[in-house]
Write a protein that binds this DNA or RNA. Structure first.
Lengths: 377, 377
DNA sequence: CTGAAAGCGCTTACAG
DNA sequence: CTGAAAGCGCTTACAG
């Protein structure tokens, strides 16, 4: 006979929980334990537990009560094997290098977990690095892992290797829109956030506003630049290319260098809108090194609300993406797809950003301020 | 007959990958696909794939080659169901409120994922909040989720509800040691880190060093205080209780208040060792508001290397825990337990901290400095 | 060194 | 409204 039968005693190995020889074992109740107790079939129990229609309310009630008494928890492996769905979502952890991505993706992850667990789903985390070691891209995640859906947080700029085949399960891409892939998207309205930041500066009285622009192949910073330009235009202010300094990479040093360059070009301006907080940090260093005060001599606004933003001197006025909510939104999109409520080809959920007003921007003090152009060394 | 057979055609439903009617399906190859191709049994294929002994090198080679050709990936659900182990680890995401915990647990998580995926394990993330909604504590994680092990990052101070029964699978607790629970532990050597920080101050010439102490029920900050006291004693400096200000909760404001209190008590000191970066931030505010310069008039050292530490003015000298490495260490402990290499009752892995010297601490300028005691308002 | 058979705990057509 | 039977894709004693 089968070894398991032999091992688990007279009851026929139906469940370790009733095995007297193994009192302290994991002792998981199964669906047939419940069925036996109630003199029902496993089929009925299974249906009752999954809220399937076609049964007395009374039967259902009894099954649930018994399940609760026994501390029954569905064996996810068995369910996955038979039903062909795992009730799990994979989240691909990006290869983060800096701090901000880390913070970003943690909050996305938290939103994700909170939302899917309410739907009875489980989150499996896979690292992009691991996928790469297996010679796979993030889009190949289903080749290696079984899940009912995936969310990919895409943090890097530039081209993305668009997969040849369509995905076997729904995919949500967070943080950027990639053309030509069969997925849903969650992004923040970076353009609108940048618009609001710039407008804030304008409403303070600034007319000459420089911009530290991110890399031109970055999905998010290019949209921030558009927001900046649109805010100026809408206020009847000309967009001057010489006030826009593009930056090739995102770092404090890059922000410093870009600002130095701006100063050396002897443009005059009363405010700067930086596409990224980290760049703003470099800008501050540049200003301070020239004895310029923020916001006394120059106002500064930025984007991201990185963890240091509220803590630097002066605290940075900036724009925040709803990171946690973006995670939840991604989860909801996935649930809608998986449960068949969403049938359109692709949906993009664009989330509102939030203007965080701190103290790095103020009205220009035309009379008393040091002209930044004069501070060029 | 069975519906699945009927559905997948003449080959007997062995695998969708050979079903001509469904060319684009998920098309997962199974073990029997490989077996058929090679005229072997599923048993042998299964064994070959799991590196079990007792077979020709040649057979093994063939199986692996065929598996690769077919893009075979083990069906984890089936394997879990039969073998009784899931090859997955649960990570319980703590309820973070502040930023630092978020950063902390992200890096722990990354170390965890990287390490376990090398062992063929998968990471399932569960939130503490979700467990609580189910009326469970973090220690009940196995009641709700099946996994071969768990890692719990315990961030909060104070008592912990020690579980009555032992765990059905290995558990590693990260960030604190809890007596009376059947687990392994990964902690940093906070005492040693604090000792090093204090010693750094002493070697700079400070003899009068105040301490912003964390909550007295916090596992980590109490060890930091011990490190501070031991460093003083070892240097022949008396530990003065009036130079130690305890704080009830950890926040910038609490650090500010504690420092104000210290100043008002008119103690004189030339340096402060703060148990937590966030408190140090409040201390800085207090000093600056009194026109005291750091490190000109007071030196400041801290602990955590929170994300703002390198970015405030002046950049904070502090102590860093190896967060990523702690995640890996937790994973390794788990693997050792699961694979039976570790049999002792409990092992605690204490990780070395790192002194990060930036610019908030310098030699005391006894001649020129403003005495902090005189700055009391 | 290799395989046949049973079983893990569910779910799903199908039949009543 | 309920159940018997087959099957998901593996792994594991057991037998040769």
């Amino acid at each position: 006979m089968a070894r398991r039968k032999a091992k688990s005693g007279p009851k026929g190995g139906k469940s370790a929980s009733r095995d007297p020889g193994n009192p302290r074992a994991s002792a998981r109740a199964t669906i047939v334990d419940i069925a036996h107790k109630l003199k029902l079939s496993a089929t009925t129990v299974s249906r009752a537990l999954r809220d399937q229609p076609g049964m007395t309310a009374e039967t259902r009630r009894q099954v649930r009560a018994e399940a609760r008494r026994l501390g029954y928890v569905r064996n996810a492996a068995a369910a996955a094997l038979t039903a062909g769905r795992t009730h799990s979502i994979v989240y691909v952890v990006p290869n983060t290098s800096g701090r901000f991505p880390s913070l970003y993706h943690m909050e996305v992850l938290e939103g994700l977990v909170d939302e899917i667990s309410q739907h009875g789903y489980t989150l499996t985390v896979v690292s992009e690095r691991h996928l790469e070691n297996l010679d796979h891209s993030v889009f190949d995640v289903f080749k290696q892992f079984r899940a009912d859906g995936a969310v990919l947080l895409l943090l890097h700029s530039g081209e993305v290797p668009v997969p040849q085949t369509s995905f076997p399960h729904p995919v949500v891409v967070v943080n950027r829109i990639v053309e030509g892939i069969d997925a849903d998207f969650v992004v923040a309205d970076d353009e609108d956030g940048a618009y609001a930041a710039t407008q804030h500066l304008i409403s303070l009285g600034h007319r000459s506003i420089a911009h530290l622009a991110g890399p031109s192949d970055n999905f998010n910073t290019t949209r921030r630049r558009r927001g900046y330009e649109r805010a100026l235009s809408d206020a009847g202010i000309r967009v001057l290319n010489r006030l826009v300094v593009p930056v090739a990479s995102i770092s404090e040093e890059a922000g410093f260098q870009a600002t130095e360059k701006l100063m050396q070009s002897r443009q005059d301006f009363t405010a700067v809108f930086s596409a990224v907080d980290l760049l703003a940090l470099g800008a501050m260093r540049s200003f301070h090194s020239r004895g310029l005060s923020v916001p006394g001599d120059v106002s500064l606004m930025s984007f991201d609300d990185d963890s240091f933003a509220g803590v630097v001197k002066p605290p940075l006025s900036t724009v925040r993406k709803p990171r946690y909510e973006m995670g939840r939104a991604a989860a909801r999109l996935l649930m809608n797809r998986i449960e068949g409520r969403e049938t359109s080809r692709s949906v993009t959920s664009t989330m509102r950003t939030k203007l965080i007003v701190r103290s790095s921007a103020a009205s220009p003090n035309f009379a008393g301020r040091k002209h930044v152009a004069l501070s060029a060394k």
